[in-house]
């Protein structure tokens, strides 16, 4: 379900990550646009500088991640962030903040961020061949709702449609 920040605060306390739904965002998030979601967020598009995603679960960007992402918002330290091009402005997981600029990941490469020993670690994420580290456990995504590619932007206003499958292509 799509929640405003206030509602989400209470949702955080109730929801266990395992039960979280996943939302599919079939568009590029432009500057000033944001998604708040109690669950996982998958973006089929880019997250431009100035755009923001806050999710209680994982955030996966099938495109360029250049904006700001907060995964595991509400305290889930197991949340991860994955992007095909991993160049976020700012990254948070649960209560931890990482400045990717200080990390060593080369720009333009797929990346994955997670918490290791209480700190955000960013690592290259190989899309082919051998892959080390998480995510080793594939989570099932129950009946992922879809944000229309036409959907209006910004948090609480973002519309979605309940559809089982992805049919439209991102921009």
């Amino acid at each position: 379900m799509m929640l405003g920040p206030e509602q989400m605060a209470s949702e955080f306390r109730l929801a266990k990550v395992e039960d979280h739904q996943t939302i599919l965002v079939q568009r590029t998030l432009r500057s000033g646009q944001s998604i708040f979601y109690a669950g996982n967020v998958i973006v089929l598009g880019d997250v431009n500088p100035g755009a923001e995603i806050v999710a209680t679960g994982d955030v996966i960007v099938i495109g360029k991640l250049k904006g700001t992402v907060h995964a595991g918002a509400g305290g889930n330290e197991g949340a991860i962030v994955v992007a095909f091009r991993f160049e976020p402005t700012q990254l948070r997981i649960a209560g931890h903040v990482a400045q990717p600029a200080e990390e060593t990941l080369p720009p333009g490469k797929p990346g994955l961020a997670r918490i290791v020993d209480g700190a955000v670690v960013i690592e290259a994420f190989s899309l082919t061949g051998e892959r080390k580290g998480p995510p080793s456990v594939l989570r099932t995504l129950p009946n992922a709702p879809v944000v229309e590619s036409k959907a209006r932007h910004t948090g609480a206003g973002a519309k979605r449609r309940n559809r089982g499958a992805v049919s439209e292509k991102a921009r």
Partner: peptide
């Protein structure tokens, strides 16, 4: 950045 914002709007 502002152009991006406007394109979204």
């Amino acid at each position: 950045r502002d152009a991006d914002r406007v394109i979204g709007l």
